[in-house]
C-alpha cells in the first residue's frame, strides 16, 4: 500500500539526530512491548508480513504520530483482535472478559534461545528458472496495490540493473494477506541516484532495493 511507512525520498523530516550511548530500550514498557510482540507470534500464528501490514495499514497522520514501539503495539492489538485472542474492551478493563480462545502452543522461557536461533528463513526451493540474470536492465513496475507490498514508491517506473540473485523467497504481497508463501525469485536491483533524484546529481550515489520477480519487467520491452 502507498502508506506513510513508505518514506524513501519524502521531504521535510529534517536532520538525523544520533543519540550518543543510546540504550537498547528507553522505557520499561518498550521492553515489555517488544517481548510480548515476539512471544505472541507462536500462539498468534501470524507471519512477519502480516505483522508488517498490521503496523503500516494506518492513517498517515496516525502512523507518523506514534513512536516505533507504539506502532508495534497497535499492530499487535489488531492481529490479536482479528483472531479473537484479545477481545474489545479487555485492555481498558485490565482483565480477561471472555473465555480465552484456544491456542496451539505458547513460548516457554526454555525455548526462547532455540526459537531465536532458528529464526524465520524465507528462502525456498526454486521451481522455475530465473527470468532475469545479473546485468539485465529491468524496470520496476508502476504498481499501487492497496494491500501489502515491498516495492517502495521511489523506484516505481525507474530502470535499474540486476546486481544480485538471492534465490526464491516467500512473496510478502500474498503472504501478508494469508494467500500463501508463493515464492518468487528475489533480486537486488541497483538504480543510479541521478535517475531517481535528478536534482541531486552531485550525490554520486547508487541505490538498490531487493525486488521479487513480479515487481519487475524487462526495461527494453516494447
Amino acid at each position: 500500500m502507498d502508506g506513510a511507512h513508505d518514506m524513501g525520498g519524502v521531504a521535510g523530516f529534517g536532520p538525523v539526530r544520533p543519540e550518543p550511548n543510546e540504550p537498547v530500550f528507553h522505557a520499561e514498557w518498550e521492553r515489555r512491548a517488544f517481548a510480548v510482540t515476539l512471544a505472541m507470534a507462536k500462539p498468534g500464528g501470524w507471519n512477519i508480513d502480516m505483522s508488517r501490514f498490521a503496523r503500516e495499514d494506518r492513517p498517515p497522520a496516525d502512523y507518523l504520530s506514534r513512536s516505533y514501539y507504539q506502532i508495534w503495539l497497535v499492530g499487535l492489538e489488531r492481529l490479536m483482535l482479528e483472531r479473537e485472542l484479545l477481545r474489545p474492551g479487555e485492555i481498558e478493563a485490565g482483565k480477561v472478559l471472555r473465555t480465552p480462545a484456544p491456542i496451539s502452543g505458547s513460548l516457554a522461557a526454555a525455548d526462547v534461545d532455540a526459537m531465536l536461533r532458528r529464526g524465520g528463513p524465507t528462502e525456498r526451493e526454486t521451481t522455475t528458472p530465473a527470468r532475469f540474470k545479473i546485468g539485465d536492465r529491468v524496470r520496476a513496475k508502476d504498481i499501487h496495490p492497496t494491500t501489502h507490498t515491498r516495492l517502495p514508491q521511489y523506484v516505481r517506473g525507474h530502470v535499474g540493473v540486476i546486481e544480485l540473485l538471492h534465490g526464491c523467497h516467500v512473496f510478502p504481497d500474498t503472504n501478508a494477506m494469508g494467500q500463501g508463501e508463493n515464492p518468487h525469485w528475489l533480486y537486488t536491483v541497483t538504480f543510479d541516484g541521478k535517475d531517481l533524484w535528478p536534482d541531486a546529481a552531485d550525490q554520486r550515489s547508487r541505490i538498490s532495493v531487493d525486488a521479487w520477480e513480479p515487481y519487475l519487467e524487462p526495461a527494453d520491452a516494447a
Binding site: F34, A35, V36, L107, A109
Partner: peptide
C-alpha cells in the same frame, strides 16, 4: 501507553498465551 502495555501483558498471561519468564529472557 505504559498502563496499556501492563494490562496487555497481564491479560495475555492470564489467558496462558505468554509466559512472563519468556519475556524476561527475550529482553
Amino acid at each position: 501507553t505504559e498502563l496499556r502495555v501492563r494490562a496487555l501483558e497481564t491479560i495475555l498471561t492470564q489467558k496462558g498465551y505468554v509466559d512472563p519468564a519468556a519475556l524476561d529472557v527475550l529482553i
